[in-house]
């Protein structure tokens, strides 16, 4: 077990829906705390219903926590790699511009700061990181 003052490199996977679970919010607060303590977040990989965190047009009420916006801010402020699994995304109707065009559909569904890629990025993250956590 690593000592608490040792700098750690984390890989995070988020599998939970933003609307049917608080796990994403817990992950967000964990990541904020880890960054404040100067730990490194190597990558956040969105999989299964976790891909719903990445929908550009999610529009919760003004008095609700807009987690998609929070992820985008986090990516902007800390250059964190937010990766959305392509097969999980397509299965649920989240298409970025390239894929939408290819399928004769319109629009870019992917929120700012996220990118689409494959499961290899998840495996690479688990190999690179000192610690891997799933929310």
């Amino acid at each position: 077990m690593a000592k608490i003052n040792q700098k750690m490199k984390y890989a995070i996977q988020i599998n939970s829906s933003p609307n049917y679970s608080n796990n994403g919010k817990t992950a967000y607060h964990f990541i904020k705390a880890a960054l404040e303590m100067n730990h490194q977040i190597f990558r956040i990989f969105f999989y299964q219903d976790g891909i719903y965190h990445a929908f550009r047009h999610a529009t919760p009420s003004d008095d609700e926590f807009n987690i998609t916006q929070k992820w985008s801010e986090l990516a902007r402020e800390h250059q964190i790699d937010l990766v959305v699994c392509i097969s999980a995304a397509q299965r649920r109707g989240l298409l970025h511009t390239d894929e939408a065009t290819r399928q004769n559909k319109q629009d870019n569904d992917l929120a700012e700061g996220f990118r689409i890629s494959g499961l290899g990025q998840l495996v690479e993250a688990t190999l690179e990181a000192d610690c891997f956590m799933v929310f």
């Binding site: 999989y47 097969s87 495996v123 190999l127």
Partner: peptide, 19 residues
């Protein structure tokens, strides 16, 4: 749903990385 299928995809990807 597709939970088992999606987990198996991770299992196979990890194995494909020769872990």
């Amino acid at each position: 749903g597709c939970v088992v299928q999606e987990m198996l995809d991770v299992v196979l990807s990890t194995a494909a990385f020769e872990q």
